[in-house]
């Protein structure tokens, strides 16, 4: 316990999330994964955008950056490219990552930049009190979908894989050990990693859709989640109405900041003998 708590800013607690919210569970899984890997507190940066998910970094004892809506990955890209030695983690939500931040999400994946992205997917905009998001299932209710959502939703795992992420996992706030395990592996992957954590929003998603309280919502996850390994031997009719959790993709590829550094090393070797011109900015060296 103390190993885990040392990564929290205890004086910032209690958190602002509603009773029964799953975001604390996801944050706990992240911190336990960090504790297990014994990451140096001084070499971790956690970045977030806007929304319920994005309040998480404020409770964590690292360098933490709470940015603008949807832009966490773009800020994080600047940090990681500047300091490839830092472990950069982005905590985001379904709206933050896939609506307003969708462009940055696919491009961070395409570059395979070494950032671990935890998407807390509660299928709704919680901070603004219950509007539908690109991850709200079709037919579900939101305050801006009073007759049922008519839009299709993203499959975040497939989106991440198609865009180039090299590690992709999915779990829920019910499957906490699976979640922690996936986050641990995501942190170890040198490349763009995405862990989608389905979390319950009893206050808006639950009430609006009469899904019950947090317990019923967690039971809903339990009843419908199938581990990808188990699914491999299940018939399509048995998988009807289920969703997959576990490690969805794990294929390491060259990482962006390392590739950039390798290119720059080559350029510097070629220009080492170079005199004059615009060189001579010694104060640049960092």
């Amino acid at each position: 316990m103390s190993d885990t708590m040392k990564y929290f800013r205890e004086n910032r607690l209690p958190h602002i999330w509603c009773p029964g919210c799953g975001h604390g569970t996801v944050t706990g899984a992240l911190v336990r994964a960090i504790a297990k890997l014994k990451l140096d507190k001084n070499k971790v940066v956690v970045v977030s955008g806007i929304g319920c998910s994005s309040r998480a970094p404020g409770y964590l004892d690292f360098d933490t950056l709470h940015t603008t809506h949807g832009r966490a990955l773009a800020f994080a890209t600047g940090i990681k490219l500047s300091r490839p030695d830092l472990k950069v983690i982005v905590m985001t939500g379904d709206g933050d990552a896939t609506a307003i931040g969708g462009n940055h999400f696919i491009h961070a994946a395409r570059r395979n930049i070494d950032i671990t992205t935890i998407v807390m997917n509660n299928n709704i905009y919680g901070m603004t009190s219950g509007q539908y998001s690109p991850m709200t299932p079709k037919g579900m209710l939101g305050t801006t979908a009073p007759y049922g959502n008519v839009e299709r939703s993203f499959d975040l795992g497939k989106l991440a894989i198609a865009a180039g992420a090299t590690y992709v996992g999915r779990a829920t706030s019910y499957h906490v050990t699976v979640l922690q395990d996936l986050i641990e592996k995501a942190l170890l992957n040198k490349g763009f990693s995405v862990v989608e954590a389905l979390t319950q929003c009893p206050t808006y998603m639950g009430r609006k859709n009469k899904l019950g309280g947090p317990v019923e919502m967690l039971e809903w996850f339990k009843a419908r989640a199938v581990n990808i390994k188990a699914a491999a031997v299940m018939t399509p009719d048995k998988l009807e109405g289920k969703f997959l959790i576990g490690e969805l993709y794990n294929q390491p590829e060259p990482e962006y900041t390392a590739e950039y550094s390798a290119m720059a090393d080559q350029v510097r070797r070629r220009f080492d003998a170079f005199q004059g011109g615009v060189r001579g900015c010694e104060q640049n060296s960092d």
Binding site: F75, T77, I79, M263, S285
Partner: peptide, 25 residues
Amino acid sequence: PKVGGKFIQMEDEIGSIAAIIGASL
């Protein structure tokens, strides 16, 4: 790259200024 600096072409201008703020930090 010649002077130990970094260059990135971002996906848009919103990302560009976000990235330089991150770098400055």
